[in-house]
């Protein structure tokens, strides 16, 4: 795709959204039978699957912590998730995202309840359209809750950015590519804590404040969808009656 002349025309973005509007969001909990907990998130063209295993015995043993559980996280993009085939396996980018995802989720978990064990999170990006790390965190938080792991709160995550000198919510691939700034944010909604904040590009102090405020509002929508997904999985439906 060629670079478009303008990313915002008459106050509407390329896909017809308003600047402060999120892409359509779908969250489903408990989609994988053999995982202890799982979740599937669709955010626009993003399709992300998260699976949680554990707490289980930690192998290799020397990585065990005698007083607490260890959280391990793997973010992986499927080779077919992007237009040009991605070479499979971990690369610099996915190792970094795995690490920031782990750090975004760690503060909400009661890891000290499960000494010597490990909780594994696997995030698989099936289709990517910018903002996969935030969709991954959103999915992983639901998967952790679905696995019955005690948590202080969920974690909700969304990206904000600047395109054509305007602060917008939830960038698409085109906006990420041609825009000036991309800023993924993860939030612990109840206490309004920021557990992930990265930025590619630049913002003035004023713009940053507006962007962060917009991210908080976006995360609130995501948080509601996460809660809804968890409640729906166990909605009362007796069989054969």
């Amino acid at each position: 795709m060629e670079k478009p002349e303008k990313l915002i025309i008459d106050g509407k973005r390329l896909d017809g959204r308003a600047p402060e509007e999120m892409r359509p969001l779908k969250i489903e909990a408990g989609v994988l039978k053999r995982a202890d907990g799982s979740a599937y998130v669709e955010l626009g063209e993003n399709k992300v699957l998260a699976a949680v295993y554990g707490p289980r015995e930690m192998h290799p043993r020397h990585l065990q912590r005698p007083d607490t559980a260890v959280l391990r996280c793997r973010y992986n993009m499927a080779p077919f998730s992007v237009e040009e085939r991605k070479r499979p396996g971990p690369d610099r980018r996915s190792v970094e995202i795995s690490k920031v995802t782990r750090q975004a989720l760690e503060p909400v978990l009661f890891l000290e309840l499960y000494p010597r064990s490990v909780i594994d999170i696997f995030i698989e990006v099936l289709q990517a359209d910018a903002g996969t790390r935030t969709a991954g965190i959103t999915a992983a938080a639901v998967a952790l809750a679905d696995a019955g792991i005690p948590m202080r709160d969920l974690v909700s995550s969304v990206a904000v950015g600047k395109i054509d000198d305007m602060i917008v919510l939830d960038l698409t691939k085109e906006e990420d590519q041609w825009g000036t700034t991309d800023m993924p944010v993860a939030i612990v909604p109840r206490k309004k804590l920021v557990s992930l904040l990265q930025m590619d590009g630049n913002l003035t102090e004023e713009e940053f404040k507006r962007a962060l405020d917009l991210a908080f509002r976006g995360c609130e929508q995501i948080y509601q969808a996460q809660r809804q997904a968890l409640k729906e999985k166990y909605a009362i439906k007796p069989e054969g009656e």
Binding site: V108, R152, D153, L154, R190, Q226, L230, K231, Y234
Partner: peptide, 8 residues
Amino acid sequence: EMVVPGQL
């Protein structure tokens, strides 16, 4: 009532 993590 069904509750989720972090719910008051």
